[in-house]
Design a binder for these strands. Structure first.
Length: 824
RNA sequence: GCGAGAGUGGUGAAAUUGGUAUACACGCUAGAUUUAGGAUCUAGUGCCGCAAGGCGUGGGGGUUCAAGUCCCCCCUUUCGUACCA
């Protein structure tokens, strides 16, 4: 039989589809299930090498888990709302929904050609009403719990895309999608109160040992929890006070000024007078027109203006100047900073520029004294408190606690935890997204659409070009409605949701994707959740992967799911780059499609080439050179092995005993079991490259002519194809059928290593003299040092190195090394 | 700046706990076969050296009988973050 991959591949794809091989059981055993999840795709066109790599990783694991007898759920769907659909639609004058559906169709067909074991019966697309109905339902549940709220404030605005962006969508002060510099805009927006979950989002990272450490670190830093104090300073000549947040209360006696963010509301209540007023106003205006990228640069020279007002330090009664400075962020803490030039780099630079006092209140230790006149930078480490009244001599954390405790006792401050994480802004002034199910009524305010009236359907309008306000605002038949509460005239919210909302709960919908009355049945979700392995790119570390954990926690709180965390194990595959090392992306125009390769060399060989090139977590510079070796292996070595089958119908569950095999056969049996162990382990670590090298060695060592035991011959061949099956499913299935099996190879049992075979009787170990390898000896596996010595010293080489020298020491590690330490 | 990874032949890469560095491939060299081949097979292939031998996992130190693996300093590079008080 010739290796006709085209025939083999189309035949089995059709057969698997017809027999619903990948359909996950509706009733699964929660103790014996495996939920294999890959990040669903944005249908931006056809799939490329990056997708290809992502999905074959998940596919190999899903197939192996099937063979391990698990109830496997391996679904797929489409993250189908979003900006690119609109952009492409405008360029091509075609409706986003038509464009999206067309792309879904093409992408789905390609994925089917790749032979991915997706359960297509559960397919979802976030832009279809039967899905986004439940996205709206999610919104309403959050709203009911006070976790979805509307607020006016400064938001990130992309002038190119003409929409609001979440913090997670701004990179280096630029729009993540189009690279345009983001500006600030005052706007009414919906937010999800993710900050209520900030503590749990940080703490529960410790319950995820199978998540990569770098992702957990990135999330911790993004959430940015810090412990400190909030302290109130009285404003001089007024009853009002001004609150600051600090993590360094031990430096509070060194405060010589305060810096207020230009946007901070407290500025308005200061009653700035005289000459100061226009100067402050002018500075505020200037700060607002500067872009975030300018303002947030750490190298930017700090500037500000004095307000003419003072505050009183509650610890020592000193008057400190109040300044406005745009290095202070309005959105963090209270938007006001107590400035301690001696112990903060930024405050130091500012004080130097404006000639403000620098007062040392921390010494590095008892014997080192700082002099503010000689300092050329701030001393920012912990140390001993000095010039700090009753607190003098206290150090570090103890000092901090004492200072805050005093504030609490005197009722002008308290312990405080702060986060960098901000509430999630989810309104988008765009057409192609999930409509926000809220009505604005003059009398009742914001009123949610009753759940039984969902979905609020997105109307199919012709004009969806961005104008700076939502295109839906210009569709009166959509906007004008009646208030569900009072029945009076009202308006629907004209914004749509950030697509990250759609992707925050899709993994739950797969489990019960057709359900019309609830988002999913709790009982069904309990059977398959949590996700056992989630495979996707690192790019989602601080976006999607925080949002979907947030949703899971919220749904647990309202009783819809049982687990606090959605995914037990996370795996980030490496990027696929072109031969220059640039990441393949549509915008760069350097994407390679796997289709050409698959048509030329076959799907199985293409998959094998990608697996073999590098371990799954490493970046890959794709070139078709990678294919040569695995193609030779497949076509010339592995596939022809099936011709050596002797139709002996071996029992695949049995182990062979040494007595039943001759010497060559037994050595091959040992190799087989070593490879079974190696391949199983490689799958566990998702390092398929080493699994393949193991298979290559096994096939190389196999020699039909030297095998007389027919059952062993067939046993070895069949085990080889079983191990190859998750990597090259079509070829393996073909051989399985050829060998006479009725059921799919994926219904057979994954090979189990015969441990007794890989315990060897003798072992070849290295003999070192002073740590340098000089010879090798073969010794019994569990021999003692004496025996090993006897054998080692027979070696001529060992003799030549030890003669006439003192043997200081002999180190013998069983099965590993024999080392002689000599002197002289 | 800060944080986390990474650095091994000409190339992609192996080396579960410190224990024979370079498995498995690509490429290259030589030979065989073929009308011919970018096909196939065989042998060789870390570096220096005729050899014995020496040197070798970014560089420099250290711990150890033994270091790619552990510790310290430095260099290069990728990713994340960017005035978070």
């Amino acid at each position: 039989m010739e290796y006709n991959f085209k025939e083999i591949e189309t035949k089995w794809q059709k057969h698997w589809d017809e027999t619903s091989l990948y359909q996950a059981p509706d009733k699964a055993d929660p103790k014996n299930k495996f939920y294999m999840l890959v990040m669903f795709a944005y249908p931006s066109g056809d799939i490329h090498m990056g997708h290809f790599r992502n999905y074959i990783i998940g596919d190999a694991i899903a197939r192996q888990q099937m063979m391990l007898g698990k109830d496997v759920l391996h679904p797929f769907g489409w993250d189908a709302f979003g900006l690119p659909a609109e952009r492409a639609a405008i360029q091509r004058d075609i409706h986003p929904s038509d464009w999206t559906e067309k792309n879904i169709k093409i992408s789905r067909e390609t994925l089917q050609k790749v032979g991915i074991s997706f359960d297509w019966s559960r397919e979802i697309a976030s832009c279809f009403p039967d899905y986004y109905k439940w996205t709206q339902w999610m919104f309403i549940q959050l709203y009911k719990k006070g976790l979805a709220y509307r607020k006016r404030g400064f938001v990130n605005w992309c002038p190119e895309d003409k929409t609001v962006l979440a913090n997670e969508q701004v990179k280096d002060g630029k729009c993540e999608r189009c690279g345009t510099e983001v500006v600030k805009k005052d706007q009414n927006q919906w937010y999800f109160k993710i900050t209520d979950y900030a503590d749990r989002l940080v703490d529960d990272l410790d319950t995820l040992p199978e998540w990569p450490e770098n992702v957990k670190t990135m999330q911790r830093e993004w959430i940015g929890r810090s412990y400190g104090a909030e302290i109130n300073f009285k404003i001089d000549g007024s009853d009002e006070s001004i609150a600051i947040y600090t993590t360094r209360p031990d430096t509070i006696f060194g405060v010589t000024f305060m810096a207020i963010a230009p946007e901070a509301e407290i500025l308005d209540s200061l009653n700035i007078e005289g000459d100061f007023k226009p100067k402050v106003e002018e500075y505020k205006k200037k700060a607002m027109t500067r872009s975030d990228i300018e303002r947030s640069s750490a190298t930017d020279e700090k500037d500000g203006v004095f307000t003419g007002k003072y505050a009183i330090n509650p610890y020592n009664g000193e008057k400190v100047e109040l300044w406005v400075a745009d290095y202070v962020l309005a959105g963090y803490g209270t938007g006001v900073v107590m400035a301690v030039p001696a112990h903060d780099t930024r405050d130091f630079a500012f004080a130097k520029k404006y000639g403000i006092d620098i007062k040392v209140v921390i010494h590095p230790d008892k014997d080192t004294v700082l002099d503010s006149n000689e300092m050329d930078d701030a001393y920012t480490d912990y140390g001993v408190m000095v010039n700090s009244g009753q607190f003098n001599g206290l150090v570090g954390k103890k000092a901090i606690k004492a200072v805050i405790d005093f504030a609490e006792k005197e009722k002008f401050g308290c312990h405080k935890v702060n986060f960098k994480l901000k509430d999630w802004s989810i309104s988008r002034q765009r057409y192609w997204g999930c409509p926000i199910p809220i009505v604005h009524c003059k009398d009742c305010g914001t009123v949610p659409i009753p759940e039984e009236k969902l979905p609020v359907e997105l109307p199919k309008v012709k004009d969806f070009k961005p104008k700076g306000r939502s295109p839906l605002a210009d569709v009166p038949e959509y906007i004008n409605t009646l208030c569900p509460k009072c029945g009076g005239e009202a308006e629907l919210d004209s914004d749509t949701m950030d697509t990250f909302v759609c992707s925050s709960w899709y993994f739950l919908r797969y489990i019960d994707s057709k359900n019309d009355s609830v988002p999913f049945m709790k009982e069904k979700v309990a059977q398959y959740m949590p996700v056992d392995l989630y495979v996707g790119g690192i790019t989602h570390a601080t976006g999607h992967l925080i949002y979907f954990r947030f949703f899971q926690k919220f749904l647990k709180d309202i009783g819809w799911v049982n687990d606090s965390e959605p995914a037990k194990r996370l795996f980030n595959h490496g990027m696929v780059c072109d031969s220059n090392g640039d990441v393949m992306s549509k915008s760069k125009g350097n994407v390679t499609s796997p289709i050409g390769l698959m048509e030329e060399r076959g799907v199985d060989v293409s998959r094998l080439a990608m697996f073999f090139t590098a371990p799954s977590d490493k970046e890959v510079l794709w070139s078709s050179d990678s294919v040569t070796g695995v193609e030779k292996f497949t076509v010339n070595k592995l596939f022809p092995m099936h011709e050596k089958l002797r139709n002996s119908k071996p029992d695949l569950k049995c182990y062979f005993k040494r007595d039943n095999l001759d010497e060559f056969e037994y050595s091959l049996y040992i190799k087989l079991n070593q490879v079974i162990k190696q391949v199983s382990d490689s799958f566990e670590r998702l390092q398929f490259n080493t699994a393949i090298s193991g298979l290559m060695e096994l096939v190389r060592d196999y020699d039909s002519d030297k095998i007389t035991n027919d059952q062993f011959n067939d046993f070895l061949i069949l085990k080889t194809f079983q191990m190859s099956a998750p990597l090259m499913p079509h070829l393996a299935e073909e051989v399985w059928k050829f060998a006479g099996f009725e059921n799919s190879i994926f219904k057979s049992n994954w090979p189990v290593c015969d441990e007794s075979a890989i315990v060897k009787d003798t072992v070849v170990i290295g003999v070192q003299i002073n740590g340098k390898l000089r010879d090798e000896i073969e010794i019994p596996m569990d021999c003692n040092q004496k025996t090993a010595e006897a054998i080692a010293f027979k070696s001529e080489k060992v003799k030549s190195y030890t003669e006439g020298k003192d043997i200081v020491k002999i180190i013998f590690v069983k099965g590993r090394i024999f080392n002689i330490v000599v002197k002289g």
